[in-house]
């Protein structure tokens, strides 16, 4: 499923520019050490963390898009780093579980 389709169907707020890449799965984590061992390229990552270390981790494993839950948004320097690394960032007011259900309803696992 394309990023644009997920955005349209879940009401995500886009925080930076993105290429409309294909998303192939879901990963949920708030630990960067977990992300580099568990997340796969092309995953959408659901997280509460908004720091630079998260961007360094998701860039390394080529996560397809990051969704900050509970309305969280990163600082300007984090956005800058993500944009430079071509990591698409989004925000949702929903908590992790209700947003994960939305993604599951779209067929993403």
């Amino acid at each position: 499923m394309k990023i644009s389709e997920i955005v349209a169907k879940t009401g995500l707020e886009s925080l930076n520019q993105f290429e409309d890449d294909e998303i192939t799965g879901v990963y949920i984590s708030d630990m960067v050490s977990d992300i580099i061992t568990g997340a796969k390229a092309g995953n959408v990552l659901l997280t509460l963390q908004t720091h630079k270390s998260l961007i360094a981790a998701v860039n390394l494993v080529d996560v397809g898009m990051v969704v900050f839950v509970k309305g969280k948004k990163p600082a300007e320097d984090v956005l800058e780093l993500a944009t430079k690394a071509s990591v698409p960032l989004f925000s949702t007011p929903l908590d992790t579980w209700p947003f994960a259900i939305k993604l599951a309803d779209l067929g993403l696992r």
Binding site: M31, V32, S33, K52, S53, A56, L60, L81
Partner: peptide
């Protein structure tokens, strides 16, 4: 640089 580490958790 940005170290990939879970600081402060």
């Amino acid at each position: 640089g940005i170290v990939i580490a879970d600081a402060g958790l």
